[in-house]
Design a protein around this nucleic acid. Sequence first.
DNA 1: CTAATAGTTGACTAAAATAGTCGGTTATTG
DNA 2: CAATAACCGACTATTTTAGTCAACTATTAG
Lengths: 161, 161
Amino acid sequence: MRLTTKGRYAVTAMLDLAIHAGKGPVSLADISERQGISLSYLEQLFAKLRRNELVRSVRGPGGGYQLNREQRDINVAQVIDAVNESVDATGCGHTGSCQDGSICLTHHLWCDLSSQIHDFLSQITLADLMERSDVRSVAKRQDREHSSAFEDSLISAKVTA
Amino acid sequence: MRLTTKGRYAVTAMLDLAIHAGKGPVSLADISERQGISLSYLEQLFAKLRRNELVRSVRGPGGGYQLNREQRDINVAQVIDAVNESVDATGCGHTGSCQDGSICLTHHLWCDLSSQIHDFLSQITLADLMERSDVRSVAKRQDREHSSAFEDSLISAKVTA
DNA sequence: CTAATAGTTGACTAAAATAGTCGGTTATTG
DNA sequence: CAATAACCGACTATTTTAGTCAACTATTAG
Ligand code: FES
Ligand code: FES
């Protein structure tokens, strides 16, 4: 089983998408800046998220990504699965064959653990996360921090006008 | 968070130790053969298990390892922690600082997940595992498969006698 | 005593996964 | 048409895993 920055980035990015929805598509450049994730890396992750139909894309200027389902209908396990291919704690992929074809001594333990984790994560939706006070306050801070860039773009727009 | 063969091996080996306790110390060579784990790798893992006082060692012929506590008092989380240094799903080690010093959007989620996993694994002791029917049947199979070596040693003992 | 056993230690290594980067292409819109 | 932003494939540095190897130390059976 592996849960590294890859899965964490994916969930964070999806949550950012959920938070900033409603005002049209969100570009990866925005997510990159707000969440401090490399743009090129985000592109890789979103390719997988799109293949798993968790997001849809809009190309061209003003484009970006949008959630492909209701926030209530996307849970954390789905997001991690999409980029990580499975949250599996067994060494055999549930086939029961990690000791040269036979089942090992601890196979069932890892199966139990896997479903424990999966149950927990699949219970939590993006909508749930958005309601949490800790998430809201962090999101608020991030918007404040990067509003300067937003203002800059407004100013430069004025200047060129 | 990482749960790979390292942690799985450690738990498997500790369970093997528990199963074959009572007849004196168990050598790593025996565990290696029964569980199909490299002897040299086991040595590395048991160095850590010993440093964490989960096992004690007996040197010399007839030596090996023994559990350093009651089977009821050793749980799976302790074993994994000993070799893996923490079952932590956060990217910041619970310090809340993975976005250049500040807390990230999903920090609390990973904290919750970490304690979920830890609670689950720390609830399961070696004694619990030994009572499980699936563990008992796999152990029985392994003893059968490797009884030939055991018989061989009996025979050679008879011959030399 | 001595030879065999089995733990102890440290350094080293091959292979895999992670966490990216880079350069270019394609579709869209103002 | 030019800017934007998604799309795609290949490439790379770093880290971790999973292991090997060689040498050393303590213990005990004979
Ligand atoms: S983990 Fe499934 S057989 Fe070992
Ligand atoms: S996981 Fe703790 S701050 Fe990001």
